[in-house]
């Protein structure tokens, strides 16, 4: 059996796939968080709840209305986007121009409310969600067994990240978004409907989280606290990547997932600490994050 630093290659490779899989979630979630923070200057603590709502929407649509996983992959993010748009228009909007702390408190409160409601109706126990038949099973790659579903999840998440990045960097909508991040009042004077842009951005960030929730449903159980557990690490990812940096969010998401997985192989007790150790080191050496730009 091939060994790498005293660990069988099979075990290492499987852990790396798990790491990339987790990293894909980190990337999707921190991407949304980063875009929202860049434009709205809101530290969106509701993000974890959006992820949870996405997973629950998929669970409910499939269990009670018979929708397929594939349909949920489209519908659930739209539901989360609609929820986010309503929250932005009715509540969050009133806090622009105030200290960022108010937005943080509001979104944290909304997250507690959503998670509380889900716990009230569904309890804390997780609900199972079937892997779609098309993606069940594994392939033998010779050095490891690759679960189809995880491979799909990694690919589709990265594709979505790439698509988002292309839109932000290379389209006129993306240029407006970047301009609004720099100086939104002037952009409004030029005739760009910035309030609408803010709503759409918040809804889009929510949709990315909801999408991640659907992807997560078949692997992790669907539970009211699934988002709360994840979001703390995602904040570390955002800080490591650099606030407001799209590339930073994607790269550091994948990197952190992978490093966590490696830590699990070589020194399991350290795995949960890894994101925060890296965050501390990055903050010490590069306070603006790996890809952060000065303001």
């Amino acid at each position: 059996m091939t060994m790498i630093f005293g660990v069988p290659l099979v075990a290492l490779a499987s852990q790396l796939v798990i790491g990339l899989f987790n990293g894909a979630f980190y990337a999707l979630l921190s991407l949304g968080l980063g875009v929202i923070f860049g434009l709205l200057r809101v530290v969106n603590f509701t993000h974890g709840a959006f992820y949870t709502v996405g997973a629950f929407a998929a669970f409910l649509l499939t269990s009670y209305a018979g929708f397929s996983f594939w349909a949920c992959l489209v519908i659930a993010p739209l539901i989360v986007a609609a929820l986010a748009a309503v929250l932005e228009r009715s509540l969050l909007r009133k806090l622009y121009g105030l200290d960022a702390l108010y937005g943080l408190l509001l979104t944290f409160g909304i997250a507690l409310l959503i998670e509380g409601l889900l716990q009230f109706y569904f309890g804390v126990a997780g609900q199972p969600y079937q892997v779609p038949a098309l993606l069940s099973g594994t392939s033998n790659l010779g050095f490891m067994f690759l679960p189809h579903y995880r491979a799909f999840a990694i690919a589709v998440s990265l594709l979505l990240c790439l698509l988002t990045w292309l839109i932000i960097e290379y389209t006129s909508l993306g240029a407006k978004l970047r301009a609004a991040t720099e100086n939104s009042r002037l952009l409004e004077v030029f005739g760009v409907n910035v309030p609408l842009l803010l709503t759409c951005t918040y809804a889009f960030g929510g949709a990315l989280a909801g999408f991640a929730g659907v992807i997560a449903a078949p692997v992790f159980q669907v539970s009211p606290l699934m988002g709360a557990n994840l979001i703390i690490v995602v904040f570390a990812v955002v800080i490591i990547g650099g606030l407001g940096s799209i590339t930073g969010a994607i790269v550091s998401g994948l990197m952190l997932g992978t490093l966590e997985a490696l830590a699990k192989v070589y020194w399991p007790p350290s795995a949960n600490l890894v994101p925060f150790l890296i965050m501390a080191v990055v903050l010490f050496l590069r306070p603006r994050g790996l890809f952060g730009k000065g303001e």
Binding site: R178, L186, G191, P195
Partner: peptide
């Protein structure tokens, strides 16, 4: 009037600080 509709009445504004978007 909402700020983003004012331009459509035909006004083009060149601000004192120039307002160039540095990352664009």
């Amino acid at each position: 009037m909402p700020r983003h509709r004012i331009a459509y009445t035909g006004i083009g504004y060149v601000p004192e600080e120039r307002g160039i978007y540095g990352s664009l």
